[in-house]
Design a protein around this nucleic acid. Sequence first.
DNA 1: CGCCGATTTGATCGTGGTCAACAATAGTGG
DNA 2: CCACTATTGTTGACCACGATCAAATCGGCG
Lengths: 232, 232
Amino acid sequence: MSYCDSCVVRNRAICAALDSNEIQALNGIGRRRVLEPGQSLLWEGEDSVLVANVIEGVLKLSTGTADGREQIVGVVYPSDFIGRPFGGQTSHSVTALTEATVCVFARTDFDAFAHDHPQLEHKLLQRTLSELDRTRRWMLLLGRKSAGERIATFLLEMSERLIEPGCAAADDGAQVEFELPFSRQQIADVLGLTIETVSRQLTKLKHDGIIDLPSRRAVRILDRLALEDSAG
Amino acid sequence: MSYCDSCVVRNRAICAALDSNEIQALNGIGRRRVLEPGQSLLWEGEDSVLVANVIEGVLKLSTGTADGREQIVGVVYPSDFIGRPFGGQTSHSVTALTEATVCVFARTDFDAFAHDHPQLEHKLLQRTLSELDRTRRWMLLLGRKSAGERIATFLLEMSERLIEPGCAAADDGAQVEFELPFSRQQIADVLGLTIETVSRQLTKLKHDGIIDLPSRRAVRILDRLALEDSAG
DNA sequence: CGCCGATTTGATCGTGGTCAACAATAGTGG
DNA sequence: CCACTATTGTTGACCACGATCAAATCGGCG
């Protein structure tokens, strides 16, 4: 009996490519690890020593300049893959935003295993291609959108990605109300803005009746069409 | 005798993973195509119908908003791979910046071939992982860097990526003088700036004696250290 | 209740965008 | 080869968005 058998992301993570014998083997080289909010798993610039699957929680990928400016370059959710297989340096830090559980592998072990299991590599390739598409869409936001458009786009993306599997979501696969896993500063770091601008734009959307902010971290979308209009 | 045998990127593109029998088979499903500057190969949003390798020239990957703002989300050079394998939509347009030669495959043909050749998929995975790293580094520029820092970063990246194989490059693998494959407007679209800001920042670097601009498209780096300082 | 960090709100400033005129270069035809 | 035009790039004046600096308010927790 392996950890993997009871893993909640067993059928959504790249592991879904493996049969039960293979999963048994993978189980032997991985181990679970729990991260507290704020705790980092990988640091920008260090050699790539481990990779992981996200089992539970939300983590940020971030880079920064020498003088302390930070940019969040990605956000990962359960079933997503973390880290840089096949050598090289980690190009960004990985830090838990919520309490998180991950399934970690020594990078060299994972590389060898992947090499012997093309199905696994194929899943990883598909995931990486999707992530690249998503990242490039985000570049349009960072390069060309106004503060208002950025916030609207961000809220729409959150409403789509924060759906818990098994949760009664809206028909179109998007949440109406949800808890952000981000502080205001972290939202600013995702959108390339300052905390003050984020705050102002959110209260503006609230005053316009497009969203409601029941608590610090909660958002309720009152007028999705108007929000989509604002997203540019 | 196949096209591939004489292909200048034979040993650098993902094809390098294949032996001569395999390359023969791949040769059967691909064909060469020449693109004029400004000509597009793929359009944002259309179903992914073809993929390709770049043989010669430089191409841009771009997205835009409904109201016409454009963002260049990537630039590809000889030996780079283009397109979205394994289904889905093309998330960005692909347009030649210079005259370009590409080796195109019907997407379904390529998918099937890749499925049977894990070595090829492995190369593609490595390439995609590197591209994702590079793209994420660019997000820091778009989200957090000033106009001056963006221009400096851009020039340094160009000096590294425009090295022609076989060309007598500087020892450290970067060019001192080079021809940009971009117009001022395209530089602006890469950096998330306006054409006027690009122009002003370039003349500022020139007046500061950090670079020289011998012609519209040419750049000569006079003081690389100062340029690296300016890149943030 | 009192403290501390997070967030909101307000006032002011500066970078980079916008609009407009001008200059330089490439392209075309006599 | 040069005149003429079209395109691309540069420069200037002004403006607005979002950053910065500062203060007030909220919310969680001992």
